[in-house]
C-alpha cells in the first residue's frame, strides 16, 4: 500500500493525541490549572492536527461532512463521529478543570473511553480489510492501542508507567512484524485463485492491461523501499522504545531527557507507520503478478 504522508501523519499524531487525552481523562497525572492547560493544548494539537492531515488524502474534502452519516456500517464514519465526540467531551472536562478548578470525573472517564474507542476505530479502518492480509487481524487493533497508550504515557510525563509500556509496545510491534510476514501466504490468495485458472496449470502474466502505472498500481501495489525493511524495522524498534527507555532509566531525570525520549519515540512511530503501509500487500497486485 502507498505510504501516503497524509495517512501516516494522521494515524501517528492523532494516535498520540488521543492516547494523551485518555491519560488526562482518568486524571493521571492529577494536573490542574496551567499545567493542565499545557497538556490539553498538546493533546488537542496532535489529535486535531492528525485529523486535518487526513483530509489531504481526500479527492473532494468539501464533501467530508457526509462522512458522519454511515456509522451503521462504516468504520471510517465511526472514526469521524467518535473523534468529534471525544474532542467535545474532553473539551468540557478540560474547561472545567483549567478555568473553574473542578474535576468532573465522570466526564473524564467518558472522554478517556471515547479517546481509546477512537483509536480502536482508526485501527479497524485497516484491520477490516480482507484485501490486505497483513492488516486483517485483531493484532492491528492491539498495535494501534499500544501505540496510543504508551506514547500518551510518555507525553504525560508518566516515566515509570511509560518505561514498562514502551517495552511492551516494542514487543507487540515485533510480534506484529513477524506474524504479518506470514499472513499473505496463509490467507491462500494466488494468481491462480484470482483468475480461477489454477486447474489449467501455473498462471503468469503475459501482458499487463496497460503500459504505464495506473491508480491501482500507485495506490495499492507500492513496492518501493521494501528492500530496506529490515534496517527500518531495526531503527524503528530502537527509537520506538528501547532508546527512550534507556534515556529515562539510565540518565539523570530532567525535562531535556524526557523531551529527547519523546523525539526519539516519535521518530520510531513515524518509521513504524511508514512500514505499516509500505509492507502491506494488497491482493489486487496478484492480477499484475506483483505485490
Amino acid at each position: 500500500m502507498h505510504p501516503a504522508p497524509s495517512v501516516i501523519i494522521f494515524t501517528s499524531l492523532s494516535g498520540l493525541g488521543f492516547g494523551l487525552m485518555a491519560w488526562l481523562g482518568i486524571g493521571i497525572p492529577p494536573v490542574g490549572g496551567f499545567a493542565a492547560f499545557a497538556f490539553f493544548l498538546i493533546a488537542y494539537l496532535l489529535a486535531v492536527g492528525g485529523l486535518l492531515a487526513s483530509t489531504a488524502h481526500l479527492g473532494n474534502p468539501g464533501k467530508a461532512i457526509h462522512a458522519f452519516s454511515q456509522w451503521r456500517t462504516s468504520w471510517l464514519s465511526r472514526e469521524g463521529i467518535s473523534s468529534i465526540a471525544t474532542l467535545l467531551v474532553m473539551g468540557v472536562y478540560a474547561f472545567n478543570l483549567i478555568f473553574l478548578g473542578q474535576r468532573i470525573q465522570i466526564l473524564g472517564w467518558l472522554g478517556a473511553a471515547l479517546a481509546l474507542f477512537t483509536v480502536f476505530t482508526t485501527s479497524m479502518i485497516y484491520a477490516q480489510l480482507k484485501t490486505v492480509p497483513r492488516w486483517n487481524t485483531g493484532l492491528t487493533s492491539v498495535l494501534f492501542l499500544s501505540y496510543a497508550i504508551s506514547g500518551g504515557a510518555l507525553l504525560a510525563g508518566l516515566v515509570n508507567i511509560a518505561v514498562v509500556l514502551l517495552l511492551l509496545l516494542t514487543l507487540v510491534q515485533i510480534i506484529a512484524w513477524q506474524t504479518g510476514d506470514k499472513r499473505f501466504r496463509t490467507a491462500g490468495h494466488s494468481l491462480e485463485t484470482a483468475t480461477g485458472l489454477g486447474n489449467l496449470g501455473k498462471v503468469r502474466l503475459l501482458e499487463p492491461p496497460h503500459s504505464s502505472p495506473n491508480y491501482l498500481l500507485k495506490e495499492m501495489v507500492f513496492t518501493v523501499g521494501r528492500k530496506h525493511a529490515l534496517k527500518l524495522r531495526t531503527i524503528s524498534a530502537l527509537t520506538l522504545g528501547l532508546l527512550p527507555v534507556l534515556l529515562l532509566v539510565a540518565m539523570p531525570f530532567n525535562l531535556v531527557m524526557v523531551a529527547l525520549a519523546i523525539v526519539l519515540h516519535v521518530i520510531g512511530v513515524f518509521t513504524a507507520r511508514w512500514l505499516f503501509f509500505a509492507e502491506a500487500e494488497h491482493v489486487v497486485g496478484l492480477y499484475y503478478d506483483k505485490r
Binding site: M1, L58, Y287
Partner: peptide, 24 residues
C-alpha cells in the same frame, strides 16, 4: 456524495474501482 477517500478501492479485491485523478 463521494469525498474521494479511496477506502472502497482498498476494500475491493479485484481492482474494479479507480479514483479519477482530475475529478477526485
Amino acid at each position: 456524495r463521494c469525498m474521494g477517500c479511496g477506502l472502497c478501492a482498498w476494500a475491493c479485491p479485484y481492482g474494479a474501482r479507480e479514483l479519477d485523478q482530475l475529478a477526485g
